[in-house]
Design a protein around this nucleic acid. Structure first.
Length: 589
RNA sequence: GGGCCCGUGGUGUAGUGGCCGAACAUGCGACCCUGUCAAGGUCGAGAGCGCGGGUUCGAAUCCCGUCGGGCCCGCCA
């Protein structure tokens, strides 16, 4: 037996028992003849006392011990005198008086402090990830992640779902993100792809009759990284048969409400989850993943400036553009520099310019960037429309709708951050519904699927497929949380004729469709049930629940922005022999 | 592909043209110390400033290039 207890479980009630502990030296306080060692494992920390008179051999081991040495200690548990309680430790009312101590393994000086949250270069943390993972922050995050996944598994099991694994080596499809490819040794010149998601496979499971499926599924996308994007990530992949959109939304909402109440009871939830249409989300927030923790809604100034002669607005209005504004309460005190930052930000987001005005106290002059270019009546009307209060900063953008949304979304998030409006203990889940089915791709001069080519259009919009495809709404839905997209899904097409209509629209000819999706199309001819699903992103949800700002903090071994594993140095060159077996010749430019 | 930020003993920082063959804290080594919990005290070792070039009488500091890390745009059906 290596240990009788963990370092986190001893309490005053254990006093008098002899225990055997094993763990890492978290901290050592050496008083000469008396040494205290905080022994740590993932369950907690226990203070062990080494007395040179009472147990000279054990004391000698403690004397030589250093941070992160691995020790085994035997001795009786003593309740501490009340004045020596340590309220910061769960085990703070007791200590173990070592009678024997064994050095299980020494440790070199660690390049990271385990007992201190470091501000060190993240590259160092990633290179020595196994040390970084010893720290409290990462232990907490990975334990939280375990609890989240465990809760989901248990919940869905109770709801009658089956967890079914799907292959990692699958067929490449050129649609969507860039695939990670795996060369075939047995089939020279041919490749598998790693799944971007198990989309097609889960739909085929529906055809197979597994009407409630889920999987904690690893997904791979060879695209550039972000704080919330890694080359491999985990989705809660789900699919259900004989359901409509409402069934999926209801299930997910119940699941995540129950999950949050269980694993992050200190956080508040808004229930039921607010629902926005895609059009409404863009209208009110300029984003299809708005942070719903605060208001700061965009105001349409179209009606107010419709008749304006000012060139500021005319150029946009006469070319189908919009004029919209954002009221930032109390930001009228911003310095010139702070305003310039906002203007720069707007330009970065694609705006030609940003108009701003400060609402004056009654009777005062309006301080603004465009006062000379509009009449006093127009300025007053704008302030009225935006419900500006004295001291507010009004930000206005006149441009194409897409630019207006993009810019004001950026400014809204920046303002929300500056004004500290986003309560970190509020979980603002929400649904964004009725996405367009397809989107015009200007470069390629064709219609692209917004979600994916198996997403069902809304029945009442079917008649527009031939005439005005851009207005066809999809039976698709996104789950958002605190400004992040944390899941997306749809009701799928299960009718062959509708599928064909969509392929025609997307410009996928029959031969191409058969080559790429033949297995799907054929499967749909053998009695495919109506079905739909969703795929919440586990990493992002864990990140938000753990109060982290990158998903790397909730992954054990993440990669850098360049998709490199700094610990193992992957990717790396391989032997010529391996390449030959795979029939691969390198062509390095 | 592009924009912005960062890179100084093991670790975190200071130093932004000569005061620097580099300072502070922590960690490390030695010694002292029987109630600490970021223990305390004394002494000591440890970097030539990511790398390469250039400007200058003189470069950690300025310039160019390059490598690594981060944030963002593009990309992510």
């Amino acid at each position: 037996m290596f240990r009788s207890h963990t370092c986190g479980e001893l309490r005053a009630g254990h006093a008098g028992q002899e225990v055997l502990l094993a763990g890492w030296v978290h901290r050592r306080r050496d008083h000469g003849p008396l040494i205290f060692i905080d022994l740590r494992d993932r369950y907690g920390i226990t203070q062990v006392v080494f007395d040179s008179t009472a147990a000279p051999a054990a004391h000698a081991v403690a004397s030589d011990a250093r941070s992160e040495y691995v020790l085994q200690v035997r001795g009786p548990v003593f309740e501490r005198p009340v004045e020596a309680y340590n309220p910061d430790l769960a085990t703070g009312t007791i200590e173990v008086h070592a009678t024997e101590a064994t050095l299980l393994n020494p440790a070199r000086n660690t390049p990271l402090y385990i007992n201190k949250e470091g501000g060190e270069d993240e590259a160092l943390r990633l290179k020595y990830r196994y040390l970084d993972l010893r720290r409290e922050r990462m232990q907490k995050n990975l334990i939280l992640r375990h609890r989240i996944v465990k809760f989901i598994r248990d919940y869905l099991d109770r709801e009658g779902f089956l967890e079914i694994e799907t292959p990692i080596l699958i067929k490449s499809t050129p649609e969507g993100a860039r695939d990670y490819l795996v060369p075939s040794r047995i089939h020279p010149g041919e490749f598998y792809a790693l799944p971007q998601s198990p989309q097609q496979l889960k739909q085929l499971l529906m055809v197979a009759g597994f009407d409630r499926y889920f999987q904690i599924a690893r997904c791979f996308r060879d695209e550039d990284q972000r704080a919330d994007r890694q080359p491999e990530f985990t989705q809660l992949d789900m699919e259900l048969s004989f359901v409509d959109q409402e069934d999926v939304l209801d299930l997910i909402e119940r699941l995540f409400i129950a999950l949050c109440r269980e694993v992050v009871p200190h956080k508040r939830l808004v229930t039921p989850f607010p629902r926005l249409t895609y059009a409404e989300a863009l209208e009110r927030y300029g984003s299809d993943k708005p942070d719903l923790r605060y208001g700061l809604e965009l105001v349409n100034l179209g009606p107010v400036v419709a008749q304006s002669q000012s060139g500021l607005f005319r150029a946009a209005l006469d070319t189908g553009g919009q004029v919209k504004g954002l009221r930032v309460p109390g930001a009228g005190t911003y310095s010139r520099k702070q305003l310039d930052e906002l203007v720069d930000m707007a330009k970065q987001a694609g705006a030609r310019g940003l108009l701003w005005a400060v609402v004056p106290a009654d009777g005062g002059d309006v301080r603004s960037s465009f006062g000379k270019q509009v009449s006093p009546e127009e300025m007053a009307a704008i302030i009225r429309q935006m419900e500006g209060e004295p001291g507010d900063l009004l930000l206005i953008v006149a441009d194409a709708p897409k630019i207006v949304a993009q810019v004001l979304d950026r400014l809204r998030r920046e303002s929300g951050a500056r004004l500290n409006l986003a309560d970190p203990n509020l979980l603002a889940w929400g649904w964004v519904l009725d996405f367009p089915l397809v989107e015009w791709n200007e470069e390629e001069q064709r219609w692209d699927a917004v979600h994916h080519p198996f997403t069902a259009p809304r029945d009442e919009d079917l008649h527009l497929m031939g005439t005005d495809p851009g207005r066809v709404r999809a039976r698709a839905y996104d789950l958002v949380l605190n400004g992040y997209e944390v899941g997306g899904g749809s009701i799928r097409i299960h009718r062959r004729d509708v599928q064909q209509q969509l392929f025609d629209l997307l410009g996928i000819d029959r031969e191409t469709a058969m080559r790429q999706f033949g297995h799907m199309l054929e499967a749909f001819e053998y009695g495919a049930p109506p079905h739909g699903g969703i795929a919440p992103g586990i990493d992002r949800i864990c990140m938000i629940l753990a109060d982290e700002s990158t998903i790397r903090e909730v992954m054990a071994f993440p990669k850098t922005q360049q998709a490199v594993d700094l610990m193992t140095s992957a990717p790396s060159p391989v032997d010529e022999r391996q390449l030959r077996e795979l029939h691969i010749a390198l062509r390095l430019e």
